[in-house]
Nucleic acid binder design. Structure first.
Lengths: 343, 343
DNA sequence: GTTAGCACTCTCTTTATCCGAGTGCTAATT
DNA sequence: AATTAGCACTCGGATAAAGAGAGTGCTAAC
């Protein structure tokens, strides 16, 4: 169990290190106005904290640096969310007062704000299409043999894919089929489309369409939703300004993560409710084992839509990031709901 | 005027430097089997080439490095495109044999191939929507007050935007209007939509729609195409492996360019026909003044659609990149045409 | 015209040295 | 018993000196 004073010192030290990125010595702590102990006393306490695993030294006679366990403790017990200035809140609100044509735009804007206000990298996982619902299907023939199938979801997202038309198909048949689909599949979650197609729709189609087999394959082609995860970054280069990334090798491995898709799995593995923090090695993905990841989710109409994340060094300004990610995910959710309620 | 031997040596030196990234000395040139002069002779020639501005030294007694003028000369007069191995050609062709649902997918794939085969960063400018033509307009009502306007172009691209419905509008009116639009605006380039709307359509609408004013504003809202430039990167982190980017400051300024949109202007300022190379300071954009940019364009149906580019250090493997960018832009164009001709 | 020889230049690496910040421990102080 | 002053010690980082290596320019010989 930690004493009151140890808690206090740990908090001071972490805060200090977050700001300075330099190992913190007993002297510099003692110099603060709110600390009334001598460096020697503080040294004793810090040595105890180190023994318990909350602090580390970079070398034998350096100041102390929080260990991952130290950050974890800080985050779990000592963290008090930062306040945003009036100006900041005002700027944020102002940004969201615009009308956004697409959900995607709204997500991008949120990512941008997040990275600019935190000075770290923001990552957003786009609406998980699978969970959204079908609003409208449209089939537009581009030519004899090709067409575009357009799928509009209840979130206003428009998904489109090229389909090849069987040659012998009749225009009326297509129209009939599309009508049936819109009638039967309205508000069905996208991930159910395939199976619904196989069951309910099958029978109806058999009656209506003359070239049943071909139409089915066309629909099946069009309604296969693949790889729906869209990933948005903002402020990747912010990481380069962090002192922990002055090392080119570290930059390389981090930016390789940014180019790849493994990060999606990492983000999907976060619990879907509330705000979560993974510190350093707590991340599954080795490429970010020197980073901390803070995530939460956004939603619309009570439905989980996607993930908001900030990635930064372990020495992250946790209080501020926690506040910002919370505020922005909520305002994003609200904006999405507002759009929805206009319907 | 350069002598035969000077040409030869310049070419050797540039090739060597491209491979090694190290200043090239007279000795190492003399050691080659195809060089029959002593280091001293070569030193004399190199000194002349330096005097003429084609070479530079990094310090007084270092080997030589091509100057920008040297690269320019190399590119203009000494460059012979590289050959691709059978395996490479085969891999490329194989990739394009897949069916691609969207033009965008095809562009992404091209970018990926380009960056992986060159080991530099590929940049693609997406189809410039403005020049493509309207194929179909669709208005889907999501709710009482909102809807999605979907615009399908002849390239198979689908553009969609949220529009707000005037409250008093009648469903039949909308349908009528959409029919008129599809009839009158088919195959009209997107950039003309606004003006066509103001002229031809105006009159027809006045007769058909009861709430003319409101419909017009809705259409105007939906048909405003803004910021159509889509930019695709692939292999940004490849730059980090280049020896010239071991310096963190350089990385920062380069990646700032990658995050920004100024690069679009740079790419748009390249002549639209054929293959072009900008070396170092020839680029307008200061952030890439230590880089070379090779661009060409891709098209479909004879129409310029977008730009293919590779960015790398000035010491770029020009022969190989020139070949690859040429091959890939052509195969991309071909793929787009094939899709088109299926119509 | 070409080349060997040589003094010279400059970078890069290694080694030595010093400085300062910080620690742990002990003994004195409160 | 808790706190603090004092002090020897450790280590990283900055700075300087020295030496090796690669390359040059120039001169004189081939």
């Amino acid at each position: 169990m930690l004493t009151e004073r140890q808690l206090f010192l740990l908090q001071l030290l972490v805060n200090d290190y977050i700001l300075s990125a330099e190992p913190v010595g007993s002297r510099s702590i003692a110099k603060r106005d709110d600390v009334h102990y001598s460096p020697a006393t503080i040294r004793n306490e810090l040595a105890d904290l180190e023994e318990m695993g909350y602090l580390e030294k970079t070398h034998l006679s350096s100041g102390r640096v929080p260990s991952e366990k130290g950050y974890r403790f800080y985050v779990d017990h000592l963290l008090s969310p930062a306040m945003l200035s009036d100006k900041e809140m005002h700027d944020i609100r102002k940004t969201y007062r615009q009308q956004f044509a697409e959900t995607e735009e709204l997500i991008r804007v949120t990512a941008k704000l997040l990275s600019e206000f935190t000075n770290y990298t923001a990552i957003m996982l786009g609406p998980e299409l699978l969970e959204t619902k079908l609003r409208h299907i449209q089939l537009i023939r581009l030519s004899e043999s090709q067409g575009v199938m357009i799928i509009v979801t209840d979130t206003g997202h428009v998904e489109n894919r090229l389909v090849s038309f069987p040659e012998e198909i009749r225009a009326e048949d297509i129209e009939k089929v599309v009508n049936v689909l819109n009638e039967k599949l309205n508000m069905v979650p996208l991930y159910q489309l395939q199976s619904r197609l196989e069951t309910e729709i099958r029978d109806v189609l058999r009656q209506n369409a003359s070239s049943y087999e071909r139409v089915m394959s066309l629909l099946s082609e069009g309604l296969t939703i693949s790889d729906p995860e869209k990933i948005f970054y903002s402020g990747r280069s912010k990481m380069l300004a962090q002192p922990e990334f002055q090392d080119v090798d570290k930059i390389i491995s981090l930016f390789n993560v940014f180019e790849g898709k493994e990060i999606v799995r990492e983000l999907m593995s976060m619990p879907s409710e509330g705000l979560h923090i993974r510190i350093g090695g707590e991340n599954r993905l080795v490429g970010i084992k020197d980073c901390s990841l803070i995530t939460t989710t956004y939603s619309a109409g009570g439905e989980h839509l996607g993930t908001v994340a900030v990635i930064g060094p372990k020495r992250m300004a946790y209080p501020r990031v926690v506040t910002l990610i919370d505020v922005l995910s909520k305002i994003l959710t609200k904006s999405l709901n507002d759009r929805k309620s206009k319907e």
